[in-house]
Amino acid sequence: MAKSSAQKIEVHEGKDLKWTASAKKKVEKILAKYPDDQSRSATIPLLWLAQKEFGGWVSVDAMQLVADTLSLPYIRVYEVATFYTMFNLKPVGKYHVQVCTNCACMIRGSEKIVDVVKEATGLSGQGTISDDGLFTLTEVECLGACVEAPMMQINDGYHVKLTPESTVEILEGLKAGKTVKSTTPSKGLEIFDGK
């Protein structure tokens, strides 16, 4: 425990990342939400966009792209990216399985859910990618669905009132390439596409 568990950033790959044409439109829409001289407000939304666009995680290259887009010093974006836990600073599996283990879920058996996820995905711990490249498991803090505990979030969607059986079913479904419906399914892009 003595050694720090500070997030160490992935090595800079020196990739010259660029927004795609469609992402560029989203960048503009995001920037339109804030006053002209306050484009720094778009830091978090653009990191989100970068995470969605560039493989589910935020590399140093992506941070640099965001900083350049907003004319910010790199360190200011780096600070933000490491402060918020939802930015993955290293690659994750296709499905990022985040199981809530905070009090309400804990009382209703989230520990068992974590075990089941490990078993079904073959993962031994957190933060790594399963051999098939599909899953990464993270135990997370309260996700705000306490009355439907235990629950987990897979990518953007919530899966609630889990039992060991339903959990396995969801994961096996994903393995089989099926669409597994979350509680409030959305295309997930309205946030960037909205007025």
Binding site: M86, G144, D156, S182, S186, E190, I191, G194
Partner: peptide, 11 residues
């Protein structure tokens, strides 16, 4: 941030 789908609904 976790309320991604919920934010979509709100939007």
């Amino acid at each position: 941030g976790e309320y991604y789908d919920e934010t979509s609904r709100l939007q």
